[in-house]
């Protein structure tokens, strides 16, 4: 290992981290909303909506992300009709094409994770909420969604990690995120080992922090699973 070179590589790659994080964060956030929508369509009980969501998941889970990015970036721009729509200012930019592809892809996987979470909420809890007189939306907001999220979180954590790694594919549409810069350094210096080790360490660090974050959220959402803290009895508690 040549330490000076490794350090130089590290500095160049660190400069590319913001783009990687931005791609991952934007697509995970947008993807989460889309996924929730899709999961609700699946569970809506309306056959057309259910089948639409099923078809969406089938297509986006069944094709490689690489192909999706290519089709959205290079494919759509082939049609002059697309270049004359109001969407072109967005589709023109590689950043937004990458965000769109990553969002659509993660939404397909995440919708199944969320659906599993929603289905895991015990009926008794919903009935109890109804019995208290909560309207439907309030039941969803206060009871179903928090419990479903807690249940879905470990699976969702996996999906977020794979999204961080999936941003590396954005380099094929000219975005210089961590892998893009790494590939550039390798082809300039012909030294693959140091560069890939540094890039690997960077992804590992990002994902380590991400798993810690997921862990913290998981802890916050599951007070009912922890032993109660010892508390001094409050006066008048017997009331």
């Amino acid at each position: 290992m040549d330490w000076t070179f490794t350090l130089e590589t590290f500095i160049s790659l660190v400069a590319a981290i913001p783009l990687t994080l931005q791609l991952a964060a934007t697509s995970i956030l947008l993807g989460a909303f889309l996924a929730l929508g899709l999961a609700l369509l699946r569970l809506s009980g309306v056959r057309v909506l259910d089948w639409f969501a099923r078809f969406y998941v089938f297509v986006f889970r069944g094709t490689p992300l690489l192909v999706q990015i290519f089709l959205i970036y290079y494919g759509l721009s082939q049609f002059p009709a697309v270049r004359h729509t109001i969407l072109w200012p967005i589709l023109r930019e590689p950043y937004w094409c990458a965000v769109i592809a990553l969002t659509l892809n993660t939404a397909a996987y995440a919708s199944e994770i969320i659906r599993g979470g929603l289905l895991s909420v015990p009926h008794g809890q919903i009935e109890a909420a109804r019995a208290c007189g909560m309207p439907r939306f309030m039941v969803f907001r206060r009871i179903v969604l928090p419990l479903a999220l807690r249940q879905a979180l470990p699976g969702y954590g996996n999906e977020m990690i794979s999204m961080v790694k999936a941003t590396s594919l954005a380099s094929i549409i000219t975005l210089m995120e961590v892998t893009g810069v790494a590939a550039k350094i390798i082809s300039e210096t012909y030294r693959a080992i140091e560069v890939f080790i540094v890039a690997g360490v960077i992804y590992l660090t990002i994902n380590f922090l991400l798993t810690r974050l997921v862990h913290v959220v998981e802890y916050m959402l599951s007070p009912h699973l922890r032993a109660p803290r010892l508390q001094t009895p409050v006066q008048g508690e017997s009331k």
């Binding site: 290079y74 721009s77 082939q78 270049r83 023109r92 590689p94 094929i172 000219t174 210089m176 550039k184």
Partner: peptide, 18 residues
């Protein structure tokens, strides 16, 4: 400056006006 993996990909973007 926009960098591509290969010349044909760059030509797609040139033709698309990107």
């Amino acid at each position: 400056v926009r960098t591509y993996k290969s010349s044909p990909e760059r030509d797609f973007d040139l033709k698309a006006g990107r």
